[in-house]
């Protein structure tokens, strides 16, 4: 270190602080600004189609050929009324809501029992059983379409709520997420309950489920959005228009050509309506939802 002038570290830090105060924003500030610009940019990119849809849903014709067309029109009430009343969209949405609610409730109940059994009971070949459940991930509903269609038709469920809900009740993903969460609960808590002679159902109702509230809400939101977005299976198995769900209803709107043209403003009004329930859930339950995803990553 000979020949170097050694400044005390404290002095150096003080000098740096002074220059920082006088000079332009330092690197860290620039990085933050850049990051935020990037975020705003990507959010706009993602939201842009939805914004366009929202604008179009207020216009009469709904054809967009240039930026000048992206001005809200005055047909809001008329368009949404036509879609909801004339095209029975209210009915479709109610069907969708029923379907999603039944799927979520059923899935949750089945998965809770399955995960509890896998984690807390000494079953022979437990790991193999769990592996088998995970294996069903390889066979989602679209892969099973033809045999499933045959089965549902044979059971006489066509055009019924059973047809669009029962095939979705078993969920390997939910069992997996709940299993991981149950495993993260300290075994001493389970053992304390055992020593007290707390029965399995009481344990589930008063200990396990309250301790899993967050994850259950998170998983339910994911499942609801998934169920709400079902399109292909209801399209195939439901023939009666009155029993149809919103996603298929949208396609029906599109197919309704007036004077040689698709009435895009009505289609977009329908899209905006379909978007609302999942959006509302996501906004309301964003915190438990994020937590559920974090667990899944683990």
């Amino acid at each position: 270190m000979l020949g170097l002038i050694q400044y005390p570290a404290r002095l150096l830090r003080a000098t740096k602080r002074q220059t920082a105060a006088l000079a332009l924003p330092d690197r860290r500030d620039l990085e933050t600004i850049g990051l935020h610009l990037l975020l705003v940019g990507s959010v706009l990119l993602i939201v842009f189609p939805i914004l366009v849809a929202a604008i179009v849903s207020t216009k009469q014709t709904g054809i967009v050929t240039g930026l000048a067309d992206l001005v809200p029109g005055g047909h809001v009430v008329e368009n949404y009324r036509t879609v909801l009343v004339d095209y029975q969209f209210g009915r479709f949405m109610w069907n969708s809501f029923l379907m999603a609610t039944v799927i979520v409730t059923g899935k949750l109940a089945l998965s809770i029992f399955a995960a509890t059994a896998i984690v807390y009971y000494d079953l022979p070949y437990k790991d193999l059983l769990f592996l088998f459940i995970l294996f069903t991930l390889l066979l989602p509903v679209p892969v099973r379409f033809i045999p499933l269609f045959q089965l549902v038709a044979d059971m006489g469920w066509t055009n019924s709520m059973l047809a669009i809900t029962v095939p979705y009740l078993a969920s390997a993903t939910t069992v997996f997420i709940l299993r991981q969460h149950f495993l993260s609960i300290p075994s001493s808590i389970v053992e304390t309950a055992k020593l007290d002679g707390v029965g399995p159902l009481k344990f589930m109702a008063f200990v396990l489920l309250p301790m899993s509230k967050g994850i259950l809400v998170g998983v339910s939101v994911i499942m609801f959005v998934f169920a709400w977005n079902q399109y292909l299976w209801p399209l195939v198995i439901i023939n009666a228009e009155a029993d149809q769900v919103a996603q298929v209803g949208l396609a029906l709107l599109e197919g309704d050509v007036v004077g040689g043209e698709v009435s895009w403003s009505l289609v977009m009004a329908g899209s905006m309506l379909t978007l609302l329930p999942p959006l509302l859930l996501l906004i309301l339950f964003r915190k438990p939802l994020l937590r559920a995803f974090v667990i899944q990553q683990k």
């Binding site: 300290p186 053992e191 304390t192 020593l195 707390v198 009481k202 200990v207």
Partner: peptide
């Protein structure tokens, strides 16, 4: 237990009484 094993969602009182009815 070493890690106390209290039920995190119950108050101190409920923690103490929860198992008593079963025990």
């Amino acid at each position: 237990f070493q890690n106390y094993a209290l039920y995190p969602h119950m108050t101190g009182r409920r923690n103490m009484t929860f198992g008593m009815k079963s025990a």
